[in-house]
Design a binder for these strands. Sequence first.
DNA 1: TTACTGACTTTTTTAACAAATTTATCAAAA
DNA 2: TTTTGATAAATTTGTTAAAAAAGTCAGTAA
Lengths: 205, 205
Amino acid sequence: MSTVNDQQDIKREKILDASYQRFLHYGYSKTTMNEIASDLSLSKALLYYYFPDKSQLYIAVMRKLAADYLKSLEDNIVTFTDLKEAFVFQVNTNHDFIVKNYNFFDSFRLNEQNLPDTIWEIISEIHQSEMKLLSDVFKAEVEKGKIRPVDNPEEIVDLLLDALHAVRVRSISHKKFKLPQKEHLDEIHSKRLLLIDIFIKGLKY
Amino acid sequence: MSTVNDQQDIKREKILDASYQRFLHYGYSKTTMNEIASDLSLSKALLYYYFPDKSQLYIAVMRKLAADYLKSLEDNIVTFTDLKEAFVFQVNTNHDFIVKNYNFFDSFRLNEQNLPDTIWEIISEIHQSEMKLLSDVFKAEVEKGKIRPVDNPEEIVDLLLDALHAVRVRSISHKKFKLPQKEHLDEIHSKRLLLIDIFIKGLKY
DNA sequence: TTACTGACTTTTTTAACAAATTTATCAAAA
DNA sequence: TTTTGATAAATTTGTTAAAAAAGTCAGTAA
């Protein structure tokens, strides 16, 4: 809690902000450490003083994004008692998140091999948090007798999340791959809402 | 209907069979025209007498596969009156088809750009045929009052097909990409059956 | 005339290597 | 402890030559 560390943290944050802007506009591979450094009027070497390498910097930015995203979900989903509302909120939040940070994730779309495992761990953590939040609502709904009890609520929530996630990928598969897919996002979004509607009906008595 | 054309057709079929074996074992890019020719003890030039180029040959094989696949669906799905049974049959048939021809489709997994548009047209045709078959069962079920009427049955069928298809893609996304995914096929299959179950319940009264 | 081939040309892949760019390190200054 | 300029190491990019594969065609055989 010393002032020294506060100062460090502030600088770290500044680096993360500048990096985020660069990654957001140009993606991972088209962003160089020199560019980030000169955006901040710092030497590139200083970046390596605060972060071990480029991929760790990218991961740190992603961690921040993930935390913000999960915060938004946590703050709101606990207030819902209706399972459908909860899923709709998840889909909306997710949609906004993807739209806002679309270019940031270019390293995923062009599936670059050099990304470290940590990336997948973060994604897995996000997924688990979503599962936890939604499963809790699920169980609450079962308690209240609004939907049928099931052996494994997590499995059902996972399945719907899978299906929702998948709608994204499928809708481009029989058109050309190359299309940036960004134009499809809204179509996908409305399809997802419909899927939630039918799926949740299927869970009721 | 002359004997000459019959002979031609027989030879064409032989070429298609040999090509299928090669494509199935080694995939598109690792199969050479010379290999196909020598499998048949023919000159490579003859292949070009029957097919304009390699991609057209591949497409012709794929057309045959698609026809077989659709035949199997058509022969059986019309006999079903239950929508769930129809979807289960679709998923099972699809699963078997993918498992059997897994290597044939390697050109899709490593998304090669050089594949001609015709490939996507074939996939689109398959999808439309599936839509038609399943939509008819859907409408019949509505007629019989077993499920709720909807504005656009095709849209619902499309959505479920999307969701089912998507389950495949999603299940690998937070593990590594590279894994051949073949091991996941059975897990995906059972998830799909569960999805069908819940989704169809959601369509009932 | 139709089915077919060997020899040939063109196109695509692969490998090797130099040049340029970028990542990453480090001794030394502030 | 924080910061930098200089420099080393690694990666990407561009070039070129050789090899492999696709694709063509004049001509033979049935």
